[in-house]
Amino acid sequence: MAPTPFGTLKIGDDLPALTFPPITRQTLALYAGASGDHNPMHIDSDFAKQAGMEDVFAHGMLGMAYLGRALINWVPQKAIRQFSARFVAITHLGDQLTCRGTAVEELEQAGEQYVRLRLSATDQNGEIKLQGEAIVLRSYLM
């Protein structure tokens, strides 16, 4: 695997962006089955329309799983202490998410050094869908 750029990470540095394929009905069907989230809003168009939505839409947690994929592309999973996301807007069929991260703060707790990363997932039009954060242990990044 290619070395992560983390060893030399400085506050203000951006991590390489990662873009995912457009969301299809198949993406949602597979994600529903694999995640165990069988809420019909994401897989049954009739149900979604009756609920007043245009169509089925992506599970928030699918976007967060993509954000997680971007995160472990940058940093080993063992270094990650906290990972959070706010689902800012609905991700629709056809949307293509790009995940980005920026190092925003150095933290110290109980003698350990951490870096706080600000994360986002935006669609093809630049609309923010998820805003997130991760706390990663510096010692894994050297």
Binding site: N39, A51, G60, I80, S84, F87, I90
Partner: peptide
Amino acid sequence: SLARILHGEQSFTY
């Protein structure tokens, strides 16, 4: 009802 809910926020501590 499931038709009325959205996921607002999620966080994990490992």
